[in-house]
Design a protein around this nucleic acid. Structure first.
Length: 876
RNA sequence: GGGCGUUUAGCUCAGCUGGUCAGAGCGCUGCCCUUACAAGGCAGAUGUCGGGAGUUCGAAUCUCUCAACGCUCACCA
């Protein structure tokens, strides 16, 4: 045995840093738009610039890295464009908080001053997640890194706005929008999260003017009564029809409001009377417009009660005002009752407080026309979703799409490219660069919703609309990898921009990743504090192990219950691979020239493992092709561990420890062949360890693994093997089981007696070395005798009867039990087969192959049964 | 209420187009520090594949239905 220079432990942190640096130095990640190679492009879903790497990012970006590395090895011009998203609300919140800590109030700053602070903040902290992606091993083209507020990208965003405005798809309107009182900004429907809360239904008496009677209205939000401008009943509701047209004196406020009728009111619900607050409820808004009611906004932008309400409640927070109003109505004996009531309340995703419906002037985008080509693209299969079932969700949203509120009352973001003339507010200018006499104009203060910036990502990264080789070469992209939680936010809208601006899809395949949850099923998130820090995991297990472990546990289309213990499988596998390679390296022939020969007279085991290797390549590729990353990982895992290590290497040992130099060289070359294929196959999943090992095993003049060529699945295979190897494996396992039953230690070799037919005898004799070494035999002999072989451990496998004679050491009852158990099993199976074979329909309809198989199975089981029975009787 | 998904060994889950004695990892039991690996090896136990019906010669796999759980969308005060 020669020495190996491979350490007996794999040191992940050293290796990872070394190779990442090397890859960067060699510029392997860079994609060339002048290349003649077929492009393969991915744009990263840009993480939030304020963000830190989560385990979810690890999954998502590992998948992208797998796709890109594979494409690169397949000889494509692999281009993975990285970058970050400016995340208006999140970033602005952080900057404001930082300023507060420095004693600076945002309101005292000019727009320019605030942006100055924000950019400083971004320069200081914005790069963290990018550094983290590098640590993960991502082979992004860092020369193409983009930020959504970069110059060229910003132009693309504004160009998009202007084009849509000119087309009449963007308009300004005074409307009810979702309002976040924390960020004091409008938010889109998608940023509202509905939560079921235990609330109340309050019943109030509303006195009818000039009458003793009153109507009882129910509400979940008492404070909005300050803005009531009508009470509505159903026109067909006999209880109230006589009151229609009369007036209500609104309690606490004193305003006279009409009693109106509308079909919208459900007589069955509550009392059948509904208070109408057009400025604070979307349904009431519609009724307000229909019946020409007053729109009374009773709130300030922070959610406190405004001056339109009685002074008593002015400037009180909405929830404090609620309590006060209920109390005051109770004092006036106008509180009828309070019921417990579960209802859905919309919360602001970022502010995490109940949103308000708020009247304000905002910019909207008409979506119906934009959606049309996007729906068609998915319907026709031009864009494919994996898993496909997301298509339904996508279609449902698209079919019911509403206008999108795209303006935000924030500072950090893309300022809307609209100017109002200082002297005549009705004069509007819309362009990317603004009017020539810009001093006479005021620019719109609002910025665009972040998603209205990042929806143009696949184009914007190339500075669209400027023509370039880049956009020609790398648009459309191939695959988008993202979480299903942003299917509307982002995926759907990117598809719209693709068709709208370039008349072409932005990507062909969309892979929706698993959502990672903790053991209680909660989504892993920073805010819940249940997401482990990936860096702790990298340190504990090694980055490759984390990558492989996560890929193995994330099936397509299902969420994953993540527990860090489950990464052990990855770590153990890295260790296994490392040590297998180390073993092979130890047995390299003297003066080996790193050149692989395969022109040997192979034996059974060699042909078998090479066949298995080819199967593995095929299966692996086909799983990757359908985006089943976990199954692909499993193919490699099983081949390496169960076939290569458990069997072939064990077999290799006996050869390496012999003196037969030719045979040693053959074995080594077969091992080498396996390793030289396993390493490239595994490289996309576990780039570091494989690149490190490759350095030991590659041909002298071969390239680094990252750009080595992808293994072909047409390596030479051997048809004459049949299931001979499986027979040997079963014999070995069976002998080991016998040994285990009678407690023979592994160190002790035993004698074996075999009874079998000629075929099996010839197979065994030709491969007896395998049996002897793997089952630890002292010797073996064939027996023709019909006599009973007494005091033996026995078993029957594939028609071969095996005996290990052991005077006095055998527990006969144990042996008998073992055989009886098998006997029962066989009888069961035979019953099943008999049922099939005696069924005319089966014989007539089943394919010939299946019938033949059943018949053969019956024969061999019957044969086994006879032998088992005779062995049982011998033991008695 | 609509849509989607899940239900397979004690736990976490694989099982592609229906047909080899239903698999893996962890955990558990027994034996091994056998010179690649104890992050390891060998052997072993545990499942009427959620319930019911149907299609089929044949169903964990296809259809229907019921149940439980989860996600998501939705304007009932």
């Amino acid at each position: 045995m020669s020495n190996t220079s491979l350490d007996n432990k794999y040191s992940s942190s050293f290796v990872e840093g070394k190779w990442y640096k090397h890859w960067i130095e060699k510029n392997y990640f860079h994609a060339d738009s002048n290349s003649k190679k077929e492009p393969y492009t991915i744009v990263i879903p840009p993480p939030n610039v304020t963000g830190m790497l989560t385990v979810g990012h690890v999954l998502n970006n590992t998948i992208q890295d797998i796709l890109i590395r594979k494409a690169r090895m397949e000889g494509k011009e692999a281009c993975w464009i990285p970058g970050t998203d400016h995340a208006s609300i999140a970033t602005e919140t952080k900057v404001i908080k930082m300023l507060e800590e420095q004693g600076i109030d945002k309101n005292t700053l000019s727009r320019e001053e605030f942006l100055d602070h924000a950019w400083q903040w971004k320069e200081k902290y914005g790069g963290i997640i990018i550094q983290q992606l590098k640590k993960l091993g991502c082979s992004c083209d860092w020369e193409r890194e983009r930020f959504t507020m970069d110059e060229g990208y910003s132009t693309a965003v504004l160009e998009g706005f202007v084009k849509l405005y000119e087309k009449g798809l963007i308009y300004k309107g005074h409307r009810l929008v979702n309002w976040c009182p924390v960020s004091k900004s409008a938010i889109s429907d998608e940023e509202v999260i509905h939560k079921e809360v235990d609330g109340h239904l309050w019943y109030f008496r509303y006195p009818i003017k000039d009458e003793k009677e009153h109507l009882i209205v129910a509400t979940t939000r008492p404070e909005t009564m300050l803005g009531d401008s009508a009470v509505a009943v159903n026109p067909n509701d006999d209880r109230y029809s006589k009151h229609i047209g009369k007036k209500i004196i609104l309690p606490l406020v004193g305003r006279e409001i009409p009693i109106i009728s509308d079909d919208y009111v459900d007589p069955e619900f509550g009392t059948g009377c509904v208070k109408i607050t057009p400025a604070h409820d979307p349904n009431d808004f519609l009724i307000g417009e229909k019946h020409n009611l007053e729109f009374i906004n009773i709130m300030n932008e922070d959610g406190s009660i405004s001056c339109t309400a009685p002074s008593k409640y002015m400037n009180k927070d909405r929830f404090i005002a609620r309590k006060a109003i209920v109390k005051d109505l109770d004092k006036l004996n106008l509180l009828h009752k309070i019921e417990n009531y579960k209802n859905k309340v919309g919360y602001s995703e970022r502010g995490n407080v109940p949103i308000e419906f708020y009247m304000s002037e905002q910019w909207f985008m008409k979506m119906t026309d934009l959606a049309k080509p996007a729906i068609k693209a998915v319907e026709s299969g031009e864009i494919k979703f994996h898993p496909n079932h997301w298509v339904k969700t996508y279609n449902h949203w698209m079919a019911n799409i509403k206008d999108w509120c795209i303006s935000r009352q924030l500072t950090w973001g893309h300022q809307i490219p609209v100017w109002y003339h200082k002297n005549d507010k009705s004069k509007i200018h819309v362009s990317v660069n603004g009017p020539e006499d810009i001093e006479n104009w005021d620019q719109e203060k609002d910025v665009l919703d972040t998603w209205a910036s990042s929806w143009i990502w696949p184009l914007g990264v190339h500075n669209w609309p400027h023509a370039s080789k880049d956009i020609e070469k790398f648009y459309p992209t191939n695959t988008l990898v993202t979480g299903p939680d942003i299917i509307f936010f982002w995926v759907a809208r990117m598809i719209m921009t693709g068709y709208e601006f370039l008349d072409d899809k932005p990507f062909t395949d969309v892979y929706f990743t698993s959502i990672l949850r903790d053991e209680a099923g909660k989504k892993l998130s920073k805010s819940l504090g249940n997401s482990p820090d990936p860096f702790d995991l990298f340190e504990e297990y090694g980055t490759d192990a984390v990558r492989f472990g996560i890929m193995l546990m994330a099936p397509q289309g299902l969420d994953v219950l993540f527990a860090k213990d489950r990464l052990e499988i990855g770590r153990n596998f890295m260790n296994k691979l490392w040590n297998a390679c180390r073993f092979v390296d130890m047995n390299a022939p003297e003066n080996w020239e790193k050149h692989e020969h395969l022109d040997y007279e192979f034996e059974l085991a060699d042909k078998w493992i090479l066949n298995k290797l080819n199967d593995a390549i095929k299966n692996y590729n086909s799983q990757l092709k359908r985006f089943y990353f976990n199954e692909a990982a499993k193919v490699l895992y099983d081949f390496v561990w169960s076939d290569f290590c458990d069997w072939y290497i064990e077999i290799a040992k006996t050869r390496f420890y012999s003196e037969d130099i030719e045979r040693k060289a053959m074995t080594y070359d077969v091992c080498l062949r396996c390793i030289r294929i396993i390493l490239p196959l595994m490289h996309p999943y576990t780039p570091f360890i494989t690149e490190e090992l490759w350095a030991y095993f590659k041909e002298q003049d071969q390239s680094d693994l990252i750009i080595a060529s992808w293994p072909k699945d047409d390596i030479q295979t051997y048809d004459d093997v049949g299931d001979d190897m499986e027979v040997i494996q079963e014999l070995v396992t069976s002998i080991r089981a016998m040994r285990s039953r009678v407690n023979i230690p592994p160190s002790k070799n035993v004698k074996l007696i075999i009874k079998c037919n000629e075929d099996k005898r010839s197979l065994i004799s030709q491969n007896d070395e395998l049996l002897i070494s793997l089952a630890k035999l002292d010797s073996y002999e064939y027996s023709e005798s019909k006599d009973k072989i007494s005091e033996s451990a026995t078993s029957v496998v594939r028609g071969v009867e095996l005996y290990i004679p052991l005077k006095g050491l055998v527990d006969l009852e144990k042996e008998k039990m073992q055989l009886t158990k098998r006997k029962i099993k066989i009888e069961d199976l035979l019953k099943g087969i008999d049922r099939k074979l005696s069924n005319e329909n089966f014989i007539n309809n089943a394919p010939e192959k299946i019938i033949k198989g059943e018949k053969e199975k019956e024969l061999s089981l019957k044969d086994e049964l006879i032998k088992i029975n005779s062995n049982i009787s011998m033991l008695s």
